[in-house]
Amino acid sequence: MHPIRKQRLQIVLLIVVASSVAVGLMAYMLGQNANYFFTPSQVLQGEAPENVTIRAGGMVVEGSIARSTDSLEVSFLVTDGMANLRVSYSGILPDLFAEGEAAIATGQLDQQSVLQATQVLAKHDENYTPPEVADAMNKAYEMKQKEKQQQYQEGYE
């Protein structure tokens, strides 16, 4: 083959290989995310398949975390505001995992519609606040709630 043509062929091959790897990874990531991500209401409506690894996520319901005393077993509810999904997990939870925070669990659904998770990840938002400011904001929020409650009660009296 003519050396110049050989070179051109090499370019074409490289571009083809590179782009197919890129597209392959893209497809993989779409498969991981779009097809296998379910909200709690979708799961409870039976949209999620059983015995297939899926992801489900939402806000951890306040007061729903139940820890076992003698093992790392933990169970909690995640919600999307409409439905609650129970997640059961055995392992170490991330630092940011807490009630009222977002979490994403990977695992399989059992017959009782409980997600038997193999991984639980905490999701955080894009907001960053110093602790003092966060405290002040929380206090201000509580004050407002109290005021509202008082006004509400006063309205009844």
């Binding site: 590179a18 890129a22 893209m26 990531m29 779409l30 939870l93 991330p94």
Partner: peptide, 28 residues
């Protein structure tokens, strides 16, 4: 420390990995 994992195949991270491969391609 935040999410609980070093790596996850999510869209942002995977597309960033593709960027790395593109740079490698130009170098190669």
């Amino acid at each position: 420390p935040t999410w609980g994992t070093y790596w996850v195949w999510d869209a942002r991270i995977t597309s960033m990995l593709i960027l790395l491969f593109l740079y490698f391609g130009v170098i190669a």
